[in-house]
Simulated scan of single mutants.
Amino acid sequence: MTGEPRIPCGPAALPASANSNAAFAHGADKAALRAMLKAARRALDPAQKAQRDAAIGARVLAWWRGRAAGGGAAPLGVYWPLRGEPDLHPVYADLARAGVRLALPLVVAPDTALAFVEWVPGEDMLSDRMGVAVPARRRVLERPSVLLVPCLGFTTERYRLGYGGGYYDRTLEALPRPYTVGIAYAGDRVEFAGARHDVALDVVMTEEWSDC
């Protein structure tokens, strides 16, 4: 749906990255992987990061427009970027102007699934208990059926490496599962042994490619 040749969605389909962090130590300790990926993001040149964010945003926007054209329009769960995550605010603004209903995640308590609140870009924001921006006026929604999920890292099998809080893991446990689009930089691909609770993402989008 991006106007580029479709990449098959099998585990071996994810291509190598020209910007790889070379984090392919299978079974590597997740804490060490997190530290390495965080350091790589801190070292990323701001201008280069902005270019990568724009490229990811273009893919997300094209994908969503194709989904809507096929009758798949629905509320979209998005995220507020933290710790160097890809910043998709320009895309959010475009989607909102097109009438797409957006929802941001909200941490309601430790060790629980995320709640979701309606968000209109530009409205007043506050920080939640985790220091994440949420709308000052909270309008709670049902969990959206489609979620953009930020990844600190991801594997060839589309398992996500987050910050260790487990909030998205718990959010994805309940059926029916939402359709999940992992958002990451191409160099964030790593390898680790998946745990029993890990749920594979449906799609991963980076600045270099998307497997959808």
Rank of each mutant, 00 (worst) to 15 (best):
E157F: 13
Y167L: 02
R177Y: 05
R170Y: 08
Y167P: 00
A174Y: 09
T156N: 12
V149Q: 02
Y168E: 06
F154W: 05
L161N: 07
L147T: 06
D169R: 01
G165P: 04
P150C: 04
D169G: 02
Y167M: 01
E157D: 14
G162N: 11
C151R: 03
T155N: 03
L172N: 07
T155F: 02
P176Q: 10
E157A: 15
A174G: 00
L161H: 10
L172V: 13
C151Y: 06
L147G: 09
E173P: 01
E173F: 15
Y159D: 02
G165Y: 07
T155E: 01
Y163G: 01
V146Q: 04
Y168N: 06
F154D: 02
G165L: 09
G164Y: 08
T171M: 12
A174F: 10
T171S: 13
L175W: 07
T156V: 08
P176A: 10
Y168S: 03
R160W: 13
G153Y: 14
R160S: 09
G165A: 11
V181K: 11
F154M: 08
Y167R: 01
Y167H: 14
Y179P: 00
L172M: 13
Y163P: 04
A174L: 14
G164M: 09
Y167W: 14
G162E: 03
T156R: 15
V181E: 01
P176V: 09
Y168G: 03
T155C: 03
V146F: 08
T171G: 04
L152Y: 05
V149G: 00
T180Q: 01
G162W: 14
E173C: 12
G164A: 03
A174N: 07
T156G: 15
G164I: 09
L161G: 04
P178G: 08
Y179C: 04
G153S: 07
P178M: 08
P176E: 10
R160I: 12
V181W: 10
